[in-house]
């Protein structure tokens, strides 16, 4: 960060290269939309460039980055709720497919929709705790909440996802066998 503060583009390229994929995946899973996720990730990366001179290493860089990405996603979502809901409605219109790729894509979309139905904080808890494989303490730090509160969020998110996904999956399989 000290090198980036001195406008060292090579250092910036290296840092962005290291964290871009992670930031984009978090943003896409939180927002449920690739285009918005790319916009948010770009915004966050430019913030790193602009704010490097004021960077103070109070926390791990990755923890700070997760926090910035999450806040940027929440801001984005607050500003664009109607568009996000419209996208979900379109995605809900699944067409039956025959080949494996189509089935895999449909399943992926179902999980994405189920995640989007979760309250924001529960969804973030799943993204950080499951997909990013952060420890509970790291995820709680990234969300700026207490450890116990994070564990509660994760527990509720898991229960709700089970209700949404597994029961639906069983009904689907059961109907297929009939």
């Amino acid at each position: 960060m000290a090198r980036i503060a001195r406008q060292d583009k090579d250092a910036y390229r290296m840092l962005v290269g290291r964290h871009l994929g992670k930031s984009l995946k978090v943003a896409e899973r939180v927002l449920g939309n690739r285009q918005d996720a790319e916009d948010v990730t770009q915004e966050v990366c430019l913030k790193i460039w602009d704010e490097a001179v004021r960077w103070e290493p109070r926390a791990k860089f990755s923890t700070w980055l997760y926090r910035v990405v999450i806040n940027a996603c929440l801001d984005r979502r607050r500003k664009a709720v109607p568009a996000a809901m419209e996208d979900l409605d379109l995605l809900a219109d699944d067409a039956p497919g025959a080949d494996e790729k189509m089935i895999a894509d449909q399943l992926s979309d179902r999980v994405r929709r189920a995640l989007q139905v979760l309250p924001e904080r529960q969804r973030i808890a799943i993204v950080l705790g499951y997909y990013e494989e952060l420890s509970n303490q790291e995820a709680a730090d990234a969300m700026d909440i207490m450890l116990g509160a994070f564990q509660q969020l994760l527990f509720r998110a898991k229960q709700r996802l089970k209700d949404e996904l597994i029961s639906e999956e069983r009904e689907y399989k059961h109907a297929g066998h009939l």
Binding site: L24, R34, T41, A104, L107
Partner: peptide, 20 residues
């Protein structure tokens, strides 16, 4: 297994270039 089925693509080189 269900959560793992949700795949997210890697960032494109164009995104990296745009940021830089």
């Amino acid at each position: 297994a269900l959560l793992d089925s949700y795949k997210v693509e890697e960032p494109s080189p164009e995104l990296m270039e745009r940021i830089l």
